[in-house]
Amino acid sequence: MLVDIKNLRVAFETRTSRFEAVRGISLQLGKEKLGIVGESGSGKSLTARALMKLLPSNAKITADTLTFDGIDVLSASERGMRQIRGKRAGFILQDPKYSLNPVKTIGSQVAEAWRTHKRGSRKQAEEAAIDLLDQVMIRNPRTVAKSYPHEVSGGMGQRVMIAMMLAPDPELLIADEPTSALDATVQAEILRLIEDLVSRRGMGLILISHDLPLVSHFCDRVMVMYSGRVMEELKASELMHAKHAYTRGLLDCIPSLTHPRDRLPVLNRDAGWLNP
């Protein structure tokens, strides 16, 4: 078991108030592809970030179990977490425009990821970076390595991000809406690339997305979240025939080219969903 989460809660506390954003999530993951879907604010990203302990300092994490490959993440020190972050679990963020360092060359950022966890000289790291850029299908890796993030397109930036996160050969890849900031045509390319690399390397994948059809094609399993809770978990292939009213509601809101409608329905929320 790569990831084991039981009853995870994430709360934000200030002196006067407390808000619980994740309210008792449980999930298990082996070397498979898990999709997490749900609307904005449903706690998808927080769940993923809690696993890597990448939450802001005012977030309080509690859980019955929160382990990565048997390592207790909750009690792990910052030093211990650094043996997981990057090295064993990569994390791809949404928009490469903001998630890459604007004043460092692409090559140096990829090389840094490699060198942090692998032993080798600066020269070896540079070569490894160029090899990695080549692996994510960048055509002229040597030129791209010398350029800065603002000089490349969004799709290219996300390839760089993927190369960077795969550099230390992790066992798990978390992709937090990796294609939301990209054009539709580029989205497909990036997803194909992730799928290809993940299956070739035999990694686990957590794909966080808004896009239900995409997740149903792409993943093995899908977890549907709403308001910090899991609504249902099902095989990806069965997503289009989901039973839960929330999932059905989400599916119903997807516009269709083959059966166009005058007006898309509005999701009717049921307070009962929150008290299973």
Binding site: M52, F91, L93, Q94, S99, N101
Partner: peptide, 15 residues
């Protein structure tokens, strides 16, 4: 507050 700081931490870099 930048996202690239999260990226840097996710890479496993020291504080």
């Amino acid at each position: 507050k930048g996202e690239f700081v999260i990226t840097a931490r996710a890479k496993g870099l020291s504080a």
